[in-house]
Simulated scan of single mutants.
Amino acid sequence: MINVYRLPLIASFVLLGACASPSKSVQVQKQAQCPISLQAGQQLILSLPSNPTTGYRWAVREEAAKVLKSLGPEVYSSAENSDLVGGDGHSTWRFQATERGEARLLLTYAQPWDASAEPAETFDCQIRVR
């Protein structure tokens, strides 16, 4: 039989355990947030500044496929308060951590038709899945 006086104590431990569990997703917007450590099943949401009207696009060069699964294509969104054509926005990718290990997630920001030019920006991040 459960002691009625201990129920609040048991409930507080259950709630404390729920608070300690990791969130279902990790949002990353800057290189400074790397390296990234995830648990299997957690989602990684990567959002980088982008303006495709300039001809520059982010391209995934190494997608860490051995530890991450892509959850769909890149999604571009413009700033909420911007009514300007050609205004800045963000490109967003969603991944899910699949299995333990380490891998590199590498993206470059360049004009795809100019293969000889260096990328304007690079996002290079080590991913660890526990």
Rank of each mutant, 00 (worst) to 15 (best):
M1L: 12
N3M: 06
V4N: 03
Y5V: 06
R6Y: 08
L7G: 01
L7N: 01
L7M: 08
L9S: 13
L9Q: 14
L9D: 11
L9A: 12
A11R: 07
F13S: 11
F13P: 01
V14Q: 05
V14D: 11
V14L: 15
L15I: 11
A18K: 03
S21T: 14
S25A: 12
K30V: 05
A32E: 12
Q33E: 13
C34V: 10
C34F: 12
S37C: 10
Q39L: 05
Q39M: 05
I45G: 00
L46P: 01
L48G: 06
S50A: 11
T54H: 02
G55S: 02
G55N: 02
Y56C: 01
R57W: 07
E62D: 13
K66Y: 00
V67W: 03
V67L: 07
L68I: 04
L71H: 03
G72Q: 13
G72S: 10
G72I: 10
P73H: 10
N81G: 02
N81M: 08
L84S: 07
G86V: 00
S91K: 02
W93G: 02
Q96P: 00
T98F: 03
E102P: 01
E102R: 15
R104D: 15
L106V: 15
Q111I: 13
Q111M: 11
Q111D: 07
P112D: 09
W113I: 07
A115T: 15
A117D: 12
A117T: 09
E118K: 12
A120H: 06
E121W: 05
R128N: 14
